[in-house]
């Protein structure tokens, strides 16, 4: 399992498919926003928390169809299915690798990108924390969606359609936490709720994803 994890991390760093790309996508979304909404500092600061969360979420989503795609096409996944490693662990290892190569860099970069949108560093810290807690859930849900759309050619659009509604609760609590911090209010449990969603996803999604993988591989 650990080997699979390191293999996936190394592959995505070397091939340049996911690692830098998701981050660059996130940056571009952030840069385009002032062009769409005008350069007013006050307006930007007001919408920055939601915007940064949305950008990170989209970057996470767009990189998630490659989690299983390559291994499914070249047959590696079938080999893994016949190995003693249960498919639940395969799913967990792959999601963890995805999180390490997209979720973590996105969370760390978000406060820096926030500066572009006139978001002060203190709020940026809360943003970073909320993303750190929330991106595991995003990675897990994204790769769950990837297991569903494995056999579909050009599944990218379908994947977004399936996964985005599942992202709603995480997004709500994430934006809520950062907005509360921006207004100087207490965090009233939003961060805990994000953590709960992530932990719940770890507990439940492996079984469903393994079911979906089995259905795809039979």
């Amino acid at each position: 399992m650990i080997q699979l994890f390191t293999r996936d991390v190394v592959l995505s760093v070397r091939s340049g498919g996911g690692f830098g790309l998701a981050l660059a996508f996130f940056l571009i979304v952030v840069v385009l926003m002032p062009f769409a909404l005008g350069p007013d500092q006050f307006v930007l600061a007001k919408i920055a928390p939601g915007l940064l969360w949305l950008g990170a979420l989209l970057a996470c989503l767009l990189s998630s169809d490659r989690i299983f795609g390559m291994d499914y096409e070249d047959g590696t996944l079938e080999l893994l299915a016949t190995s003693p490693l249960p498919l639940e662990s395969v799913y967990l290892a792959k999601s963890a690798a995805h999180w390490l190569t997209t979720g973590l860099p996105l969370s760390l970069a978000a406060p820096v990108f926030g500066l572009l949108l006139n978001l002060n560093l203190k709020v940026g810290g809360v943003l970073c924390l909320s993303l750190l807690l929330g991106t595991p859930a995003l990675s897990l849900i994204g790769s769950f969606g990837a297991t569903l759309t494995l056999g579909v050619r050009r599944g990218g659009l379908l994947l977004s359609l399936l996964v985005l509604p599942l992202y709603i609760p995480t997004l709500i609590f994430g934006a809520l936490a950062v907005n509360a911090a921006a207004l100087g209010k207490a965090l009233d449990g939003s961060l805990l709720s994000i953590l709960a969603i992530s932990l719940g996803a770890i507990a439940v999604l492996p079984f469903f994803s393994a079911m979906a993988l089995r259905a795809n591989l039979q």
């Binding site: 056999g151 509604p165 709603i168 609760p169 439940v204 469903f208 979906a212 259905a215 795809n216 039979q218």
Partner: peptide, 16 residues
């Protein structure tokens, strides 16, 4: 296959 996949989606979707 699609019966399995949609069922999984329906269950996870219900939770979410």
């Amino acid at each position: 296959k699609v019966a399995d996949l949609t069922s999984v989606l329906a269950l996870v979707g219900a939770v979410f």
